[in-house]
């Protein structure tokens, strides 16, 4: 049924992504792909995932197999004040998920018990309307199966009692080497993720569209202001220019003198 849950339980499982510490390594995207096509019952196929090897007569050439996770890199601001921010993008499991309500078949649905948005691959007709209705580009068409695919929030991990409890988190969360991804119940104001969101000023993407995404993003922390502190060099150029007799030992000064000759 593609109506949104009439009486949601208040449980809203989702991710909190910390843009301050994401290093843009793409490990979340790669481990997501690995988990979801690696198993015999995984939701993903491996058609043209990494290159256009399986092109059909040339028209499908290109690595446009389905991934649930994509890491973009943005430059924010201009000039010397600009900064690079890595931005992982995946399904946000919205409260007002238009991808669900536009679905003509009932294949798309939002779970009442935890708010996870899923696609039933056995009833999806591959009309792609849900991908048009999603502002976040979270849904992709699987050419191998002829149906739409999307992030499952690793529903086969988070409830999997065969895994150790510590591993019952989405693959992207477990693999992140910087711990930039957090998983939890965003419907519970006292959960660790909710506390993190309120402490760090977590926000919604494209709030103006009114989809009320569950996943939240934590903004990069403000850059430390070095201008007030003369001890701390502002840039590498400043460091090179600084004539500081205290730097280095006698040996290093001798090496410097020799090399500078």
């Amino acid at each position: 049924m593609t109506a949104l849950p009439a009486s949601p339980t208040g449980r809203r499982l989702g991710l909190v992504i910390d843009l301050d510490i994401c290093v843009g390594c793409h490990a979340c995207a790669v481990n997501c792909k690995e988990w979801n096509f690696g198993g015999h019952s995984g939701p993903l196929t491996d058609w043209n995932s990494f290159s256009g090897t399986e092109d059909r007569g040339g028209e499908d050439a290109g690595a446009w197999g389905v991934w649930f996770n994509r890491v973009h890199t943005f430059e924010v601001g201009d000039g010397p004040d600009s900064r690079t921010v890595h931005f992982p993008r995946s399904c946000l499991h919205c409260e007002d998920a238009a991808c669900v309500t536009v679905c003509p078949t009932g294949a798309s649905y939002k779970r009442e018990e935890d708010g996870i948005v899923l696609v039933n691959a056995d009833t999806c007709i591959g009309c792609k309307l849900c991908s048009w209705a999603c502002p976040y580009g979270a849904r992709e068409y699987d050419h191998a199966d002829g149906v739409m695919k999307k992030c499952t929030l690793c529903i086969d991990r988070i409830y999997n009692e065969n895994l150790d409890e510590v591993d019952r988190v989405p693959a992207c969360v477990s693999t992140c080497p910087a711990s930039a991804r957090h998983f939890g119940d965003l419907g519970d104001p006292d959960s660790a993720v909710s506390v993190l969101v309120s402490e760090r000023g977590g926000y919604d993407l494209m709030p103006e569209l009114g989809y009320r995404p569950t996943n939240k993003y934590l903004p990069p922390r403000p850059r430390r202001d070095c201008a007030d502190n003369e001890e701390v060099p502002v840039s590498l150029a400043d460091l090179a220019d600084r004539d500081d007799p205290e730097i280095g030992s006698g040996l290093l000064r001798w090496v410097d003198a020799v090399l500078s000759r």
């Binding site: 290109g62 973009h72 890199t73 943005f74 430059e75 601001g77 993003y217 903004p219 990069p220």
Partner: peptide, 21 residues
């Protein structure tokens, strides 16, 4: 607004796409 990174009026532009094709 798509990244939430331009809240202070900064320009937000794509530096590197997630995939090459």
């Amino acid at each position: 607004t798509a990244t939430g990174l331009g809240a202070g009026g900064e320009r937000v532009r794509l530096l590197d796409a997630p995939h090459t094709t």
